[in-house]
């Protein structure tokens, strides 16, 4: 169980203009600006949930994750995870969480991954039996049996990320924080990572909190979404709710012969090529079938598809809506 109540965090950042002259000036007198990374952030996540934490760069995603994992101490507010305050009871707290930073490695660079795993086992005091069981499960599911005998520096990004995830789960954490786990991965690795995350959430009931910019991650994995912007939680809801909210607009892709000249009210031409058009229909004004009937009255349709908004587009419209 994770509970955050009115968490605030500000950073003091030194600012100066570019140039040598300015650098010298800054040596003596610095100007600071306060950045409100988090203002009054509150939410609750239940055990076994999988939550997508989204927002543009600099919105405060990483800061929240760092507070929840005990790295940062907030200025004010409360955070209770499994009955503990992370920054006060750090060692007991981190024993029960796993953290993957997509852009940072936790493996020792020059030694085979298996050696890193051994050391992590000792750091977390995992007993031999459950370590063996865990390791064989992880190597099988993530398909890293061969890879772990290679030094980390020689792994590809996709291979390394799979090892990172395995390393974060060796101690059987109840909560897993994933900070951009699929960043920079190719399609095959992304799908492998996603299906693995889905598996441990379903089978082990591990609570997963995932930050990402990849909306396919969200679509593939999470039901619940938390949207953060400028340090505030702007939206807390399910993906399907969001879809419903954004499903007013449907896009019709039409291949046709002839020409489409007249559009009914509620139809909007997004793209028009010779023999192909994309038309956005506002379903509050006009039903999709009416729109199709209207088109077929003017031209001969040879192919037609109807699509709703993608998660990507939804997020863009959300960002616009909240002006972040």
């Amino acid at each position: 169980m994770i509970e955050l109540r009115s968490i605030c965090k500000t950073f003091k950042v030194a600012r100066r203009n570019a140039g040598f002259h300015e650098a010298v000036k800054a040596l003596f007198r610095r100007e600071y600006t306060l950045i409100h990374a988090l203002r009054d952030v509150s939410f609750t996540i239940n055990e076994g949930e999988m939550v997508g934490y989204i927002g543009p760069n600099g919105a405060g995603k990483s800061s929240t994750i760092k507070i929840m994992s005990g790295i940062l101490t907030p200025d004010s507010g409360e955070c209770i995870i499994n009955g503990r305050t992370p920054w006060k009871d750090r060692i007991a707290h981190v024993r029960e969480i796993g953290v993957v930073f997509g852009q940072r490695s936790q493996l020792w660079w020059d030694v085979p991954v298996a050696d890193s795993f051994e050391l992590i086992k000792d750091i977390y005091k995992v007993d031999n039996a459950s370590y063996k069981k865990n390791l064989s499960m992880l190597t099988e599911l993530l398909d890293i049996g061969e890879i772990i005998r290679t030094p980390a520096r020689q792994l590809s990004l996709g291979q390394r990320m799979r090892c990172e995830i395995a390393a974060s789960l060796l101690h059987n954490p109840r909560i897993l924080f994933l900070d951009e786990p699929t960043i920079g991965l190719d399609a095959v690795s992304k799908i492998a990572v996603r299906s693995f995350i889905r598996y441990i959430n379903a089978e082990r009931k591990t609570t997963v909190i995932l930050t990402t910019h990849d909306m396919q991650d969200i679509e593939a994995l999470t039901e619940r979404i938390l949207l953060i912007g400028r340090g505030r939680i702007l939206l807390d809801g399910t993906l399907s709710e969001l879809k419903r909210r954004n499903s007013r607009h449907k896009t019709l892709s039409v291949d046709f012969t002839g020409s489409i000249d007249r559009l009914e009210n509620g139809m909007h031409l997004a793209k028009y090529l010779d023999g192909h058009a994309e038309i956005v229909v506002d379903t509050d004004i006009l039903s999709v079938s009416d729109a199709i009937a209207h088109i077929s009255g003017q031209a001969e349709i040879s192919d037609l598809s109807v699509t709703g908004a993608t998660a990507e587009e939804m997020v863009v419209s959300l960002y616009k809506e909240f002006e972040i």
């Binding site: 790295i71 060692i91 981190v94 750091i123």
Partner: peptide
């Protein structure tokens, strides 16, 4: 960022 990693491990 190595210190972030240190902070999430259950040791002093």
């Amino acid at each position: 960022g190595e210190f972030d990693r240190i902070m999430v491990r259950p040791r002093n």
